[in-house]
Design a protein around this nucleic acid. Structure first.
Length: 275
DNA sequence: ATACCGACCTGTCAGC
DNA sequence: TGCTGACAGGTCGGTA
């Protein structure tokens, strides 16, 4: 589900509601998949920590935790709660009275009476408690320079689409924004990453940045069920030009949008505008 | 090292 | 009304 703009939206809305709140209880489901840290360990460790803030790194959500004990109590081990939403994960802030959604895997009770809940039907999402600062796997698409961006693809034989999806190069780009940015840059997704000219890559760099920023302003893309921490849908999907528009006319030239499978993912492009 | 592909899960929708 | 298969915003581990 969630790519950079959706994760950014979720992190911001969660931050608004839980910053400064203190964790008083922690419950986890009995499914094993979502937990990279043992749930019993997290349930024992989390209560008592104050949430200093919630932010995004790549497609990860990081909740920075600080000791809620009185100052003067030197607390060496800063902690972070790390959340990845996978395909269908939701991070929700709700009142403790709100009924639990099906597929709820984590509930953190907060001192304010609110709850931070993690819901994930497909269980591709992940939760972990870290004692060392989280480092994303790749570069941030919104801050990388044009020359660093171009250098990422030098000598690579894989398609530019597959390269954009590779989180250890750029982190945060997923299937929607890979297809949409390639359309706006006029580049065929099948082109080999290492064969693109610097001009191509500069265009892709700008297209990607501007599309990610617009999508964040729109609250992300809600294709089926994505919502932010308030349960609100995004509306960037109305600006999609190729993603999930197979057979429909290109909004620029009218040619039917084509769908192929590339890097194991549905890939959408205009055969006329993208060369 | 790089690149590809199936596996991991549930839900939904189209076609029979 | 089922049933089956394809597909969905992502990553990981095994294999070539």
């Amino acid at each position: 589900m969630p790519e950079l703009p959706e994760v950014e939206t979720v992190a911001r809305s969660a931050d608004r509601h839980v910053r400064g709140d203190t964790i008083v209880s922690a419950w986890f489901s009995s499914h094993k998949e979502p937990f990279k840290t043992d749930p019993d360990e997290m349930a024992a460790a989390l209560p008592g920590w104050r949430i200093a803030g919630v932010r995004r790194v790549g497609k990860h959500i990081v909740a920075d935790l600080e000791s809620a004990t009185e100052k003067g109590e030197p607390h060496n081990s800063a902690r972070q709660l790390l959340i990845h939403l996978g395909m269908t994960g939701r991070l929700l802030v709700s009142s403790a009275e709100a009924p639990l959604a099906p597929h709820t895997h984590a509930v953190l009770g907060l001192a304010s009476g609110r709850e931070l809940r993690f819901v994930d039907p497909r269980r591709f999402g992940r939760l972990a408690l870290l004692t060392t600062p989280f480092q994303g796997p790749g570069h941030e698409p919104l801050t990388i320079s044009k020359s660093e961006f171009a250098a990422l693809f030098r000598g690579r034989k894989l398609s530019i689409k597959a390269a954009l999806l590779n989180q250890s190069l750029l982190h945060g780009v997923g299937n929607i924004y890979a297809d949409e940015s390639l359309f706006r840059a006029g580049i065929r997704p099948t082109r080999k990453a290492g064969r693109l000219t610097r001009e191509h890559l500069d265009r892709l760099h700008s297209a990607l940045r501007s599309i990610l920023k617009s999508a964040i302003r729109a609250g992300g893309s809600s294709v089926s069920d994505y919502v932010d921490a308030d349960g609100e849908r995004g509306f960037f999907q109305i600006q999609h030009r190729v993603y999930m528009r197979t057979g429909q006319p290109c909004r620029v030239c009218g040619t039917p949008i084509r769908r192929i499978v590339l890097a194991g993912r549905g890939t959408h492009f205009c055969p006329h505008c993208q060369t």
